[in-house]
Amino acid sequence: MTRSEFLTKYGFMAAAIISAAVPLAIFIFMALLGYPILTSGRLFGTLLGAWDPIHQSYGILPMIIGTFILAILAVAAAFPVCLGCAALVSDAAPGPVGRFLHGVVRMMTGIPTVVYGFVGIFLLVPLIREAFGGGSGFSLLTAALMLALLVSPTMILLFCDSFGRVTHTYRQAAAALGATTAQQFLFVVLPQARNGILAGVLLGLGRALGDTLIALMLAGNAVAFPDHVFDSARTLTAHIALIIAADFDSPEFRTLFLCGLTLYVLTTLLVLGVRLTMRLPGRRP
């Protein structure tokens, strides 16, 4: 091994170590700054309590619930549409149309989040306000609809990938038996792509959980347990953005890092889930 060879190899390795240290460093920083809460014995009170600063209660449970409800609503709204769209793009549409639509969906991933939020405020909020009477129009439903649009391209592209991986001979066998496109898709492709679909849903959830701007701009940010979809709610991400301006030493401020840690753990679990589904044995017909 020559000198330059040796140096480049360890140079690349050093870069890899730096990159791998970043997610660890994020975790360590959050844990260190959230340390006062983690050790004060108020961890469960903070994780599972209500947010009521007047009574010295700084629980982030309403934000955790808000985050989950919003993300699940958005993915649930997007799922049937994304599945149908992916079916058309990779299966039912004639070649050129499918390729064109695939390109359109990829371009959609580039639409900035803040643009969705901006259009949401000036278009969707007034619509929701008028259509459902009363209220401000800033609600879980408003944010969930926009969020569904945001996560759709991610989900569609993953669904398309998993449909594309289905063994071609199975489809040919079904076609040879006289199955129509619809039958091939529903009885051969869909069951085969089960794991990929699950992975797409988990990734969509991760994207929805982690988004800040749409929740912050459209969900109304009220700190309370929402009763129905027309209620305003606050997510963990929006909470971080709203509280950051507060005083450095206030108790509100320290809960931020607990919010950060919660989001970190949630998204890491989802990533692990996605990796696991990719490794699950596929179903044999």
Binding site: S19, A20, V22, P23, A25, I26, F29, M30, G206, L209, G210, D211, T212, T237, I240, A241, I244, L256, F257, G260, L263, Y264, T267, T268, L270, V271, V274, R275
Partner: peptide
Amino acid sequence: FDILAGMPSIVVGLF
């Protein structure tokens, strides 16, 4: 790197 890619941007901002 998968975990880093899945990190919400607000968490990176908080970092």
